[in-house]
Nucleic acid binder design. Structure first.
Length: 865
RNA sequence: GCGCGCGUGGCGAAACUGGUAGACGCAGCGGACUUAAAAUCCGCAGCCGCAAGGCAUGGGGGUUCGAGUCCCUCCGCGCGCACCA
């Protein structure tokens, strides 16, 4: 054994061993209990970032721990390889997205291997490969057959200069990121997947997901958003034609408070009125500008304009004016909402702004109502007033009565409404999975026959920002109609990349199968016993995966409904943000590595300056590591300097996995120090000579104490890895054990035996986190077998036995004293000992003891007045 | 704006089921070793106070013998908001 710890040599040796032994190759074995440990696969952006290191270290710790617990572990990895950044890189560098993507994958794969993750690379999935995405296409066609996939129009961001559709992130302050042109909303035909048909099941099944964080379940439930309400029709005439304007509301009890209805700019009524009114036409055009993002819409200054048209109130027969509202979107519901300013805060503000009437129709405990100022009780449930025959009814009764009356007139019906909308999967982009359809002038839209799949995406195109290059590629577009044989046009839209990530975890289970999407092996491995990924995916990715898995279930392809049994949402990795804001121009961000932090004598931060020019920079607090804030730390530089184990150790020690983690160079340095200390401790022990077998009967009191601590630590570490998933506390416990070991007088053979066992527990306990150094140390402690192949030991109950415990004594809620009592002391004895304690007596003084509460093993609480 | 979280020493955190607030580590300070430095080892350390003791878990209020933990409210920060992944 070398005297000093050399991470480069140690890590290479351990990785060579795992490679040659095929340690992490997973095989289906019905006789063994499987454990599928799944981490969210990365987008191949170029290099690994710290978020990846954290995510995959968590997965690797759990995988290695479960493997040592005897489970048949599968830990796969792959690449979420389609997406926008590849097109952006292509535009910037003139390199085809495919080449850029494959090069990034090669780099990042090397980095993952350098970190020593126990991955089964024989199951690698790359979503931009035809052998993967052909099954996207195949399943899409099955959904089309079952009516789960269908076509309708959807709203997109349109850049009128580049003549192209933009992603939300490419719209900045309502303008195109490259052209600066004002963005327009545009309605185009798209394909949708009917996730709302599964809404009830996706919502109901959340209750059974006990291995998911409560907050993720709550977020999903709110996102699905089941609400029971009433669809109400407001009749109107357009020329000679009788029509109705439909709105949905959960507050039908406020129907008599309706003083206007608002429609989207794209609504036929708006278009009709605008044709006669140039001012309105201008407003409608203005409404069509701006992004389609809900966050933008919600923070928008609510504006509107009267159309001069009106619809008929379905119960009172009164004329209700129709307004165009910039906050109403055509795609959601029927593109119209009813305005009840008396009892809806946003409608109230809108009515005040435009002088529309405000009518109280709900009374809550007779509180005085004023149309001058909004009060929160206006929106609460109460009893109807000013609502004709419905006066006096409460919310439920009024909704029921109004719904029944509307239904009788054919002007409304009770309806369950979902906030969840169907999933639009069409993207007007090149670097994605082609949608397998053909447009024929004679036959319409024709699916590509199964035997012609996959529709292969050409990999040599370079997008230029003006639309999808596929549409300009004749060799791709030109085709024959599979039905009639006439010349036809191939669909050039590609699929949302969320499609790719909705089932990759199923494909991991079925490597090499080019005859079917999945096979029986999926039912061995699924559901994933543990899924680990960023909290930012709490809603969309997880919901789409739950939906997609159910569709595959209903097609008889898999046996499970829920793909992820347990979910661990890791927090963000953050770092300090430094910037300078020049008087004119853009804010410049500086990487924290280039900034020197100034502190006072007590270590308090007083300021910061750029190392390059010594001039001060401003602090922007701490934020998620990102390119835009220039506050990322490159894991590779760190690994090159300290080694993979130190990177892994710091990541696991700095914070529990679900909390955000703040980067710190100094703390990372501390992780490196601890590993050196561990190495030295083992080195000192093994070079001091042979160790006799441990005889528990021969131990001194201090030997017994160290042995108890070692077994306590083992028990705690086991619980922390397995049940609690708090790796930081497991590591802290081993640090305490190592402190005790190095302090222990190991001059007798018996003491050496105790130290030997304690070191074994420290090495085993850390092995899931720092697998390379522990691989070497385990051998150094005299074990021929690799530590990863050792069974996880159990703590010896006999070693844990304690004779006496210290109890805290509180007087009137404050800690005043401590007493030693036997472990098996009865409550009366403990009470007597507490009251007899001189310090307790001093604090009780002349007061009468009213009550004594004894919490066994913890404390005694004396209440006196 | 809406939905969901989080907030504890100079810093990252611990306190698991309502029961000793600050384990473990970073930074800091003092000492040992060294010609010296680095590395390493030993020790100190929430704040106020000589001490006794008091005050402290973002602010305010409540429940309880007892609250970091439960409830209400306000403030700050983070994540998501459907075409970033």
């Amino acid at each position: 054994m070398h005297e000093t710890y050399d991470p480069v040599a140690v890590e290479a040796a351990a990785q060579r061993h795992w490679d040659s032994a095929g340690t992490f190759r997973a095989l289906e074995d019905p006789g063994r209990e499987k454990y599928y440990c799944l981490s969210m696969f990365p987008y191949p952006s170029g290099r690994l970032h710290m978020g990846h290191v954290r995510n995959y270290t968590i997965g690797d710790v759990i995988s290695r721990f479960m493997r040592m617990q005897g489970r048949n572990v599968l830990q796969p990895m792959g690449w979420d390889a389609f997406g926008l950044p590849a097109e952006n890189a292509a535009m910037a560098n003139g390199v085809p997205p495919a080449r850029w993507t494959y090069e990034n994958i090669a780099t990042m794969k090397r980095q993952l291997q350098a970190l020593g993750f126990g991955l089964d690379w024989s199951r690698e999935v790359t979503t931009c490969r035809p052998e993967y995405y052909r099954w996207n296409q195949w399943l899409f066609l099955r959904m089309l057959e079952k009516g789960i996939a269908y076509q309708k129009t959807g709203t997109v961001n349109w850049d009128p200069v580049d003549q192209t559709v933009l992603a939300n992130e490419q719209v900045i302050d309502g303008r195109g990121w490259r052209t600066g042109a004002l963005i327009e909303k545009r309605e185009i035909p798209m394909y949708y997947l009917g996730i709302t048909a599964y809404a009830e099941e996706l919502l109901g099944a959340l209750d059974g997901l006990e291995g998911w964080p409560e907050r993720v379940r709550t977020m999903q439930a709110n996102w699905i958003g089941k609400s029971e309400g009433v669809t109400i029709a407001f009749p109107y005439r357009l020329g000679e034609e009788a029509r109705t304007l439909k709105v949905f509301t959960t507050r039908a009890d406020t129907l008599f408070g309706v003083t206007f209805v608002a429609v989207a700019a794209e609504h036929p009524l708006a278009a009709h009125a605008a044709a006669l009114d140039p001012a309105l036409a201008a407003f409608v055009e203005e409404c069509k500008r701006g992004s389609v993002m809900e966050a933008d819409l919600a923070t928008l200054d609510k504006r509107g304009m009267a159309t001069g048209l009106s619809v008929t109130h379905p119960l009172t027969g009164a004329a209700v004016p129709v307004w165009v509202g910039n906050y109403v979107l055509m795609g959601y519901g029927e593109g119209a909402v009813m305005g009840v300013p008396g009892h809806d805060e946003r409608d109230f503000a809108f009515a005040r702004k435009y002088g529309l009437p405000i009518r109280q129709v709900i009374d809550v405990g007779g509180q005085p109502y004023s149309g001058e100022r909004w009060q929160s009780w206006y929106a609460e449930y109460g009893r109807c007033v000013g609502s004709g025959r419905y006066d006096g009814l409460d919310h439920a009764a009024a909704v029921a009565a109004i719904a029944a009356d509307l239904e009788a007139r054919g002007l409304g019906a009770r309806q369950v409404q979902w906030r969840l909308r169907d999933w639009g999967i069409s993207r007007q982009r090149y670097w994605g999975c082609p949608i397998p359809l053909i447009h024929c002038t004679g036959c319409g839209i024709v699916p590509v026959p199964d035997q012609d799949l996959p529709v292969v995406l050409p990999e040599d195109l370079v997008p230029d920002g003006s639309g999808n290059p596929l549409a300009k590629l004749q060799s791709f577009v030109a085709c024959r109609c599979p039905r009639c044989g006439a010349a036809a046009r191939r669909e050039t839209d590609t699929m949302d990349t969320f499609v790719d990530s909705s089932w990759y975890f199923l494909r991991y289970a079925c490597p090499g199968n080019d005859a079917a999407m999945v096979d029986a092996r999926a039912n061995y491995w699924l559901p994933a016993d543990q899924y680990i990924g960023g909290i930012e995916h709490a809603i969309l990715h997880l919901l789409y995966s739950r939906f997609w898995t159910r569709v595959m279930r209903d097609l008889g392809l898999v046996g499970v409904s829920e793909p992820f049994q347990n979910l661990l949402t890791q927090g963000m990795v953050r770092n300090a943000i430094y910037f300078r804001k020049p008087a004119t121009g853009r804010v410049a961000y500086f990487n924290p590595a280039d900034v020197e932090v100034l502190t006072d004598a007590k270590g308090q931060v007083t300021g910061a300056r750029l190392k390059a020019d010594g001039q001060p920079v401003e602090s922007g607090g701490i934020g998620t590591m990102s390119k835009s804030k220039n506050n990322g730390v490159d894991p590779q530089a760190f690994i090159d300097r300290y080694g993979a184990d130190t990177a892994r150790l710091f990541m696991m020690f700095a914070a529990p996995p679900d909390l955000s983690l703040d980067w710190s160079d100094e703390a990372a340095e501390g992780a490196s120090r601890f590993l050196k200390r561990l190495w030295r401790a083992v080195h000192a022990h093994v070079t001091a000579g042979p160790t006799p077998a441990l005889d528990p009967a021969a131990l001194s009191a201090t030997d017994r104490a160290l042995r108890r601590l070692a077994h306590q630590t083992l028990a705690k570490v086991t619980d922390d890895y397995g049940r609690r998933r708090t790796f930081n506390t497991a590591i802290a416990a081993v640090m305490e054990l190592l402190n005790a070991i190095t302090r222990h007088d190991a001059s007798t053979p018996v003491a050496r035996a105790v130290v030997h066992e304690a070191l074994e527990f420290a090495v085993l306990g850390l092995s899931p986190v720092v697998p390379h150094i522990t691989h070497a140390l385990w051998h150094a402690l005299g074990h021929p077998r690799a530590v990863i192949d050792e069974p996880w030991p159990a703590a010896d109950p006999a070693a844990l036995v304690q004779e006496a415990v210290e109890l805290v004594v509180q007087v009137n809620g404050k800690v005043r004293s401590r007493i030693q009592v036997a472990v098996d002391a009865g409550e009366d004895a403990v009470r007597a000992a507490a009251l007899a304690d001189p310090t307790v007596q001093r604090f009780v003084g002349a007061q009468t003891v009213r009550k004594v509460i004894v919490v066994p093993g913890k404390l005694v609480s004396v209440v006196a007045h």
